[in-house]
Amino acid sequence: MTDLMLDVRGLDVTFGSTTVLHGVDVTLAKGRTVGVVGESGSGKSTLAKVLVGSVRPSAGHVDVDGVDLVNHEHTSMRRYRRRVQMIPQDPYSSLSPRRTIGQTLAEAINPIRSRVSDHRDLIASWLERVGLTPDMMHRYPHEFSGGQRQRIAIARGLIIDPDFVIADEITSALDVSVQAQILELLAEIKESLGITMMFISHNLAVVQRVSDEVLVLYQGRVVEAGPVEEIYANPQHWYTRRLLDADPGSPGFSLAG
């Protein structure tokens, strides 16, 4: 099964005595995007942390693009971490206030030397790709709006050409109008680069805009999974239906609930 990016089976994660993920199964083909939906505490961020290698699974089988994350060597993790990139949630705390945008992107390209002059063309082209201008590489994060910062965070995640990208609630700190622009940008990049992505959100409407498949997590368990069209048209689990009805943009939305 070489065309699978993600092959997760029976994943359990426990912190002390609490089990955060119970027997989670996820499979994702290369070039596809899976949306992970659930409320706070449903375990969606923990799933992301397992996939970037910062949380160790307690049980199960986790295979990301051929790398076994349950029984891995410490040295192979360093190379793995550059193949899988996470775009963080909060654009205000994810960029170092004392580093220019160019320096931040150069660090992503070369973590050790991190010189802007070595990668000027690559940085400029990525700034343009995410809808900014190359001269912005000399500016500091505080000179940008939340939406612009999130564009920079996206550029940082994608500039090293990762095999798999995890976007963790990347629009939940943004206004709806800015959120729409960021979603459009992601859809566009996905189209042109054919990246494989996991898109995490608590909002089903947001997930629908960028995902091919959707996975609904509830209290650490997968309650529903499948292609977007099927799940949205015919939700089987009561929790999925509740999520759908709770969305202000959904046809089933009303305040009498």
Binding site: V176, Q179, N203, L204, G226, A233, L244, D247
Partner: peptide
């Protein structure tokens, strides 16, 4: 236009596969 809206496909859903592509 920016308000995220769930769009429900109108076609009747086909038989469900087991959550895999």
């Amino acid at each position: 236009a920016a308000t995220p809206v769930v769009t429900l496909p109108t076609a009747a859903p086909t038989a469900r596969t087991e959550g895999e592509s």
